[in-house]
């Protein structure tokens, strides 16, 4: 039996699979962004152009079309409603899922049951959740509306998401920080306020942004629970069948910009915070958050 040459470590070397998987990854990114890029480009279609290539000039015609009275009249107020609802959903999701994830760090009676309800809520076909809520409101004689039934329907989607995300965040959290705080005499509240929450903040912000965009883009749960005033995705949905102009693409470009803007804002914020923390750590040696 020949003595094998010293084998390079699988983690330190660059085997052929690295190049194959790298190529796959970039092909996936092209697949992910390619078609979306097409609609972003087409939204700047010239006034004479249609919904496919070639571009007949370049214009902002279709963006102007959104603000114009007529077919698009419902878009601006629907956008406002979507933003308001998403902000509320985001706040409630952060509050409830952070608190909930804290609870799940210990055993408590009912934890298993609540966990399975959360999973069920996550995997339940979206439209059925809305159907159930719509039926309930009808049986109780209540009018479905933005901040009652639609809010509830969206929370059944964002809460499980937020809770599972917080589990992942808390898993990476080193409990030694909390123990150190307790050993130094911090009360439970001080420990939460000055140690736990600041360390978890990037994750919490991630949950907030996720919940916001999940709500902002949600349609299947909302459609049967919204009542008479549509949110933006429902307006877009209604437009798909009737509108055959690049206006739809222009709306797509705008809503994407809103989502992206939020994410950029969040990433910048986390990055800034990280830098500040590092700067502070450089100057003085003390427990985190001991300000």
């Amino acid at each position: 039996m020949a003595i094998e040459p010293v084998r390079s470590n699988p983690i330190d070397s660059r085997p052929w699979t690295f190049y194959v998987l790298g190529a796959l990854f970039f092909a996936f990114l092209a697949f992910l962004y390619g078609p979306m890029f097409v609609i972003y480009v087409l939204s700047f279609q010239g006034p004479e152009g249609g919904v496919t290539f070639p571009m007949v000039g370049v214009s902002l015609e279709w963006f102007r079309d959104i603000a114009r009275k007529g077919q698009m009249a419902n878009i601006p107020p629907a956008f406002g409603r979507s933003m308001a609802l998403a902000a509320l959903v985001s706040m409630l999701t952060v509050f409830m899922s952070v608190a909930g994830a804290m609870a799940f760090r210990r055993r408590f009676p009912g934890a298993g049951l609540i966990f399975y309800v959360v999973i069920a809520s996550l995997v339940m076909p979206s439209l059925l959740v809305g159907f159930g809520i719509g039926l309930s409101f009808q049986f109780l004689g209540l009018q479905p509306s933005l901040f009652t039934s639609a809010l509830g329907a969206q929370l059944t989607w964002t809460l499980p998401f937020g809770l599972l995300a917080m589990f992942a965040v808390i898993n990476r959290f080193n409990r030694a920080w909390e123990e150190a705080a307790t050993d130094l005499g911090a009360t439970p509240f001080q420990r939460l306020r000055y140690v736990t929450l600041p360390i978890l903040l990037p994750g919490i912000l991630g949950v907030a942004i996720s919940a916001f965009t999940l709500s902002y883009d949600e349609y299947a749960r909302t459609t049967l629970t919204i009542g008479s005033h549509n949110t933006l995705p429902l307006e877009i949905y209604a437009l798909i069948s009737s509108a055959t102009s690049p206006t739809l693409f222009a709306i797509g470009t705008l809503t994407t910009l809103v989502s992206l803007g939020l994410i950029v804002l969040a990433v910048t914020f986390v990055w800034q915070m990280d830098r500040q923390r590092h700067a502070r750590r450089g100057n003085e040696v003390e427990a985190p958050g001991d300000a």
Binding site: F95, G100, S121, V129, G132, G152
Partner: peptide, 19 residues
């Protein structure tokens, strides 16, 4: 801590599904 989340899911998911 888990109460608000559980309550929302009870009212907006469990009961409607039961209905």
């Amino acid at each position: 801590q888990v109460g608000p989340l559980a309550l929302v899911l009870l009212l907006m998911f469990v009961l409607p599904a039961f209905l």
